[in-house]
Nucleic acid binder design. Sequence first.
DNA 1: TCCTTTATGCTCTCTCTGAGCATAATAGGC
DNA 2: GCCTATTATGCTCAGAGAGAGCATAAAGGA
Lengths: 321, 321
Amino acid sequence: MSPSLVVGLNAVIVAVTDETPRLLTVERAEHGLGVPGADRPALPFGPLDPAGHRTLELGLRDWVREQTGLELGYAEQLYTFGDRHRDPRERAGGPRVISIAYLALVREGRVSGAGRARWRGFYEFLPWEDGRAGRPALIDDVVAPALARWARQAADAKARRARTERADITFGFRGAAFDAERVLERYELLYEAGLVSEAGRDRRGATRAATEKMGEAMALDHRRLMATALGRLRGKLKYRPVIFELVPPTFTLLRLQRVVEALAGARLHKQNFRRLVEKGGLVEGTGVVEPRGVGRPAELFRFRREVLRERRAPGVGLGRR
Amino acid sequence: MSPSLVVGLNAVIVAVTDETPRLLTVERAEHGLGVPGADRPALPFGPLDPAGHRTLELGLRDWVREQTGLELGYAEQLYTFGDRHRDPRERAGGPRVISIAYLALVREGRVSGAGRARWRGFYEFLPWEDGRAGRPALIDDVVAPALARWARQAADAKARRARTERADITFGFRGAAFDAERVLERYELLYEAGLVSEAGRDRRGATRAATEKMGEAMALDHRRLMATALGRLRGKLKYRPVIFELVPPTFTLLRLQRVVEALAGARLHKQNFRRLVEKGGLVEGTGVVEPRGVGRPAELFRFRREVLRERRAPGVGLGRR
DNA sequence: TCCTTTATGCTCTCTCTGAGCATAATAGGC
DNA sequence: GCCTATTATGCTCAGAGAGAGCATAAAGGA
């Protein structure tokens, strides 16, 4: 008999290369034999071994090493997902699966050699989150009308208003402020409105055509984990110097800025970004300039550890969008 | 045979009454027969029922209702703790216990009728976190020398410097900024240095006399969960209007301020606090004044929901300390 | 009436942030 | 060598927000 309860460990592994935030995915043979969507990209996953894994994080590192060949550096716990039927095989008598998700950051230079794993662009799965070229047309062309329809389908006037307000706040409609950190809230709203294909046949306000524009699906609820990770990362950038976990030891300020922009999904003002990180004590010049490339050569900078003593919440800000 | 793996649900239930942040604790007969510290205050706890609990949060609510009679309102997941030997009974063949901790907030008026549970002051367990009367003497008189001793015990000069830097950053020694949110980091440092009694016989830099001044111990790693909760709550106050989950529907601005101060562990400037919440659109006057009390009567205010549309991250700030 | 206490209004300064202008230093085309 | 495109870097200005403190208002009690 299979155990009635499994504690799984999932890793959302993030790197930024070529100004694109990327996610490490694996093929998931074992995770869905005969289950619809079993061929979709999945996050590295493995069950906690209660006897062998001394801590959750060590267990995660073991699984990631085994499945991707990658030795993780920075990792933090994200969230634990435990709703019933997260894994459809539970309906067929499979164990209840509780998944503890971690966010891990990998430096730019180390994205090769991921074994049978594959780096995929974050925004292939969450295309509405990339606002670097201005507010994504997807939001106003596809999301807004679908959510409006979803709101109209509510039972009464009060529920309609609640749905409209929620859509406004999460996507910044009708003058509401768009908050880049609310990635999970946006995904969950899209899910409830039937706009992402993981929501299944219950399509509600959404047409098939609309759903198909909403990015690629992942296995199980892994797109939800991704959304959780991106939201957390965007939030954390603002008050912890995690950005330096994603770049090489030295970097030009423009490269640093592009990495922040890639994650924030927004463009930043170049001179102000420089002022923020330089005057803010986050970085210090090395005196060395990077020769290659057009234009005036840029100085290479490095992270300035002392900032941890000096400032309470050293981070970079995400811009407005 | 006992199962080899249990997923537990723990609740850190917080209320503020009489300007004191409080925690709901229970007696833990079942949780430590013959184990040292079994009589210590504990958090409400119950194992997840894989068949009965549809979501983790619903399972938590069930357990809290059963153990304390309380119907939870606001609740959010905090963190999942899964280190081996969190529960000492694991050493004696007990199951590996993974605990998913939640933070729940209870409104001031609802703290009665907690069944066999008991409200305890937060700072009875974490006395160094209350800086409302100025920097706690405990930090400079007890913590600082003990951590200095702990730093000196490090293997080499490099490790010594690392320990010193860590102590400086977490407690704001030697000119470093004190960050009220780093509650967990402080607790963990105290634990590693053997300054809290949960650390067991391995006392390292700490004398028994010092340890006894460091607040009351809790069962298992529950003080760690408390620290996680307080840190999260302090952080969240700054960018989400969670404070209104802790106060009645109407309140004077001074009462609101006292609740923030109680949680922040710091005093705030009265006029600036008023400006922050009033001009910031977080509250609106009701036109009604509260009669009782000395001094000029104060107007009653209420939370202004519209702020959620208008501002990206509406919160209150914690002051400097 | 005066004093104590709490509420409320307002100002001043400093810092941070958004925005934009201006100049510097390269490479490549001519 | 000169011109242009391109990127780097320095600087200023305006407005928002935060920290601090002064001043006035409205109660109750001596």
